[in-house]
């Protein structure tokens, strides 16, 4: 499994899968557009002018978001697993999901009474998410030192507290419930170009930076003394990698809500395929994240065009987070059973 050739082959396979899924994703919707027409529309040579509108205006933002969010969550999870020295770590353990959702709930509870909360919501989630990440980092540092285990425990506690606070606010305000559910589980339904612009800066900055962190990540995977002896300032490196993981996850959460499993599954799959070297694990985790999220969103979308209850209005959008939880869990269990004997 671990030879350089099979790594290259599997990486290539994942990349091809991402492209195929991307094109399929653009084809799928109320009207099916075959792949050749999708590609032509993308190249600005549509066979049918309506293809252009459907593919480029309506569907492209969602597909791009699937790509970006999957990539960000996969990479974020891989970085966090290094910082926390734990293969069960996932982006939610940065505190950004609960932070973002708590902010959203507070906001929706309507204390500010703004005219159109929907448009501002992603920003609110983003700010809450970043604050959640900062809170975990701050609460877990002790005399300026970050310890992997203390970081995990702090994150679990902060998440529990923020989760409870969210429930309390929700219980106290009925109107907030409807909108927040899809954030809780994570969804890409109805996303538009504005959402892409919101996530893009975080992805554009966070993904390259996260990949460049591979060298530091490799040393963090050793014992503290070895890492330091090789010239890595451990504490700043931990803060930086945690920060990157949090920023990537926050960018993702602000447009899609708290999508679970991708950030756990992608890095674990990457480790099974590529071993432990972060120079391979990080990019592969990002790539697998894309593939998983696009595939899951494809399922979510195809289920939504044939709603089980025909009487329901225009679209019953199955949230991608739910699909991932249902299909992802068995996949992850199989993977872990095979890799940890």
């Amino acid at each position: 499994m671990r030879s350089a050739r099979s790594f290259a082959a599997l990486t290539l396979l994942a990349a091809v899968a991402a492209v195929v899924l991307f094109v399929l994703h653009l084809g799928l919707g109320t009207v099916w557009i075959p792949p050749d027409r999708v590609v032509l529309a993308l190249l600005d040579r549509p066979t049918d002018p309506t293809d252009l509108t459907i593919v480029r205006e309506l569907r492209l933002p969602r597909a791009i978001l699937g790509l970006l969010v999957g990539c960000m969550l996969g990479l974020s999870g891989a970085l966090l697993q290094v910082v926390m020295r734990n293969r069960l770590a996932e982006p939610g353990l940065t505190g950004v999901s609960t932070g973002g959702i708590f902010a959203a709930v507070l906001f929706l509870a309507g204390t500010w009474g703004l005219p159109s909360p929907g448009q501002l919501l992603p920003f609110v989630v983003l700010v809450g998410a970043l604050a959640g990440g900062a809170l975990v980092l701050f609460a877990s540092s002790f005399r300026g030192r970050i310890d992997p285990l203390r970081l995990i425990l702090t994150a679990v506690i902060v998440n529990a507290v923020l989760g409870s606070l969210t429930s309390i606010v929700m219980l106290n305000s009925q109107q907030a419930l409807g909108g927040i559910l899809s954030w809780l589980i994570g969804s890409l339904n109805g996303r538009v170009w504005d959402d892409v612009w919101l996530a893009l800066p975080w992805a554009a900055a966070g993904i390259p930076a996260g990949l460049l962190a591979a060298r530091a990540a490799n040393l963090l995977q050793l014992d503290d003394e070895s890492g330091r002896a090789l010239g890595l300032p451990l504490q700043p490196a931990r803060v930086a990698l945690f920060g990157l993981a949090a920023v990537l996850a926050a960018g993702a959460v602000s447009v899609s809500g708290a999508i679970a499993f991708v950030g756990l599954m992608a890095p674990n799959a990457a480790r099974v395929i590529a071993g432990a070297d972060a120079r391979r694990v990080l990019p592969l985790a990002a790539l697998i994240g894309c593939v998983l999220l696009l595939a899951a969103d494809l399922v979510a979308q195809s289920l939504s065009i044939r709603p089980p209850i025909p009487s329901s209005s225009a679209r019953v959008g199955l949230p991608v987070g739910a699909v991932l939880a249902v299909f992802g869990a068995p996949l992850l269990i199989t993977l872990i059973r095979r890799s940890i004997r």
Partner: peptide, 27 residues
């Protein structure tokens, strides 16, 4: 200038010998 081999070093599961040795070039 100084290499240290600690008393009880540890590496992540799956790291190969070459990958480990390459980390020596970090500085």
């Amino acid at each position: 200038l100084v290499s240290v081999l600690p008393q009880s070093p540890s590496s992540p599961p799956g790291l190969t010998v070459r990958e480990l040795v390459e980390l020596g070039r970090f500085p």
